[in-house]
Computed example of a mutant assay.
Amino acid sequence: MANVTLSARGESEPATAWERYAQVDAWPQWSPQITRVETEAARIAPGVTGRVVGPLGVSVAFRIDEVDESARRWSWTVHRGPLTVRLHHGVRPDGDGTRTWLTIDAPLPVVLGYAPLAQLALRKLVAAG
């Protein structure tokens, strides 16, 4: 397993970036690797499950493991077949903007393939507007 942390800084307010994470139906708006989310929940919460669907209809199952609204941090696990990936996210103020971070725990080939898409998504998450 490999572990890598990515981060991005942008001009959005921390509360705005957090809500983009917290509202499940907003994920496709800032994450290019997600075309839709299939879940009964409108908001992230421990125990929420569902599927994230990406380009060409490829999907992965997910489970939200932890959410700390006051600290603006959350973790989830995604899996497809025998492959499991754990993702840890956070948002914090950074000067007059916001910094978000993501730690990916996964096999090295998955980390190397996913990191560029994740970095793009992080930039969009904290962008103004």
Rank of each mutant, 00 (worst) to 15 (best):
M1S: 15
A2V: 09
A2Q: 15
A2L: 10
N3P: 00
V4F: 02
T5I: 07
R9D: 03
E11L: 13
T16K: 10
A17V: 11
E19C: 06
R20G: 11
A22L: 14
V24S: 06
A26C: 10
Q29S: 11
W30V: 04
W30Q: 03
W30T: 01
Q33N: 09
T35H: 07
T35Q: 13
E38G: 07
E38Q: 13
T39P: 05
A42P: 01
R43L: 08
I44K: 00
A45F: 03
P46Y: 06
P46W: 08
V48M: 07
T49M: 02
G50V: 03
V52I: 14
V53K: 07
G54V: 05
G54P: 01
L56W: 09
G57H: 13
G57L: 04
S59L: 03
V60Y: 09
A61C: 01
F62C: 01
R63I: 02
R63E: 14
D65F: 10
E66R: 14
E66K: 08
D68L: 02
E69T: 12
S70W: 00
A71D: 10
R72H: 12
R72L: 08
R73I: 03
W74H: 15
W76H: 12
T77P: 04
V78I: 14
H79W: 12
R80E: 04
R80Y: 10
P82N: 01
L83C: 04
T84G: 02
T84C: 04
H89Q: 11
P93D: 09
G95Q: 14
G95K: 15
D96W: 00
G97T: 07
T98E: 09
T98R: 00
T98G: 05
R99W: 07
R99V: 10
R99G: 04
W101V: 05
L102H: 08
D105P: 00
V110P: 00
V111G: 01
L112N: 08
L112T: 05
G113H: 03
G113I: 05
Y114N: 04
A115N: 07
P116G: 07
L120E: 12
A121W: 03
A121S: 15
K124A: 11
L125H: 08
L125V: 09
L125N: 09
V126Y: 12
A127P: 09
A127T: 15
A128S: 13
A128I: 09
